[in-house]
Write a protein that binds this DNA or RNA. Structure first.
Lengths: 201, 201
DNA sequence: GCCCGCATGTAAGACGTTACATGATTAC
DNA sequence: GTAATCATGTAACGTCTTACATGCGGGC
């Protein structure tokens, strides 16, 4: 039993705050975002669900069906929500795009203040890396290394677009929060499950 | 000895085609690009160098110095170059940004044809993911999931900027290769213009 | 007939990090 | 004097993937 990573375990736990899901549902959801943050394989996903279950952070409803494997629908418990809250408190992101996106998806579980802090933290990191790249470009001088030039140019392009996205998003969120009063509460109004989610056949 | 991954081993080997380097040099170089592709820790880097040495793909020159650890300068051998060439032939990228950047850095070891193919491959992948995100947005409808909306919006912004970068870069490379006759040789003339463009601190 | 999607899960091993060990030099 | 950089390396451990096992249903 390869004790799964804290971050991935918590992330999957937090997906269950959106709605109860089966392991396969989690997989499909993450596969649709695989470009941004990759998606775990069965070999890591199912052990994580089992660990959550054994830790009492989720419950499972087994839906038995004729002649096919039962679907196991996982639902987060109160204990799970508490554990999640504790994890959310100590945001210490590690600079990678993946960890940034992880927390971005969880925006609903964050107070607006925390969300803004998260975005601003990312902003400063990207800005720093932009500077680093600029220094690299300067240090390179006239050496004709096509690969390095392309890479640095690429990095600059990505960094620039990310910064503008962060700026406009921050501005939008700030603008939205000014008229509102509930600054500290979670901003997610209609949390109610709505378990349909699959209409396509 | 945790036999290191093929890709990382080959990538580090290929860095030595740029110039002979010590392990620490490799580390520093990769740290300066850590945002794009991360940088390996000592625990993976040094075993890789040892494996390359034992495989005869590199040689080492030990520079002894007074009272400090000797610097070990690694140089790629003919056998190393051949092995690298073979690896380069079978480009089967795996969609991640990291693997894309890895090959981008190695542009000098690629024929122009291969480089263009690489960029075009990336282009089609990003375009596909852009479509996926679009579908997600459509499927979401009016559900108010702030985190998911932000994430999808973010993904779209990144994808768009990457596509425009790829387009302009492809165009530039095509434009440069038309007048020239040597289509198949490695290209490295000092092309890429004007990468300044920093306005914000 | 065959492969793909659905749906779960396990075992073995590849991969990489963390933490340590060593120790001189430079900078605050 | 405490910390950071230079510079190498090892061992233990955490983490994740690959490949397999199972088995039905639907499309080509």
């Amino acid at each position: 039993m390869p004790a799964p990573s804290v971050s991935l375990r918590c992330f999957i736990l937090s997906l269950l705050t959106r709605q109860p899901m089966s392991g396969y549902d989690v997989k499909r959801f993450l596969r649709s975002l695989s470009w941004l943050m990759g998606s775990p394989s069965s070999g890591s996903l199912y052990p994580i669900l089992r660990a959550l279950l054994e830790g009492g952070l989720v419950t499972v409803d087994v839906v038995v069906r004729q002649d096919r494997p039962p679907r196991k629908i996982y639902t987060i418990t109160q204990a799970g929500k508490r554990a999640l809250q504790e994890w959310m408190e100590q945001l210490t992101p590690s600079g990678t795009l993946k960890s940034f996106v992880m927390r971005l998806i969880l925006a609903n579980n964050l107070s607006r203040r925390k969300l803004l802090a998260h975005l601003e933290h990312r902003r400063s990191e990207v800005a720093r890396h932009q500077n680093t790249i600029g220094q690299n470009v300067a240090a390179m001088g006239d050496k004709t290394d096509l690969g390095l030039r392309l890479t640095l140019d690429y990095g600059l392009a990505i960094a620039r677009s990310e910064l503008t996205w962060l700026d406009t998003t921050l501005e939008r969120l700030l603008h939205d929060s000014e008229p509102g009063q509930a600054v500290e509460g979670n901003l997610l109004q209609g949390v109610v499950p709505d378990v349909s989610a699959r209409s396509r056949s």
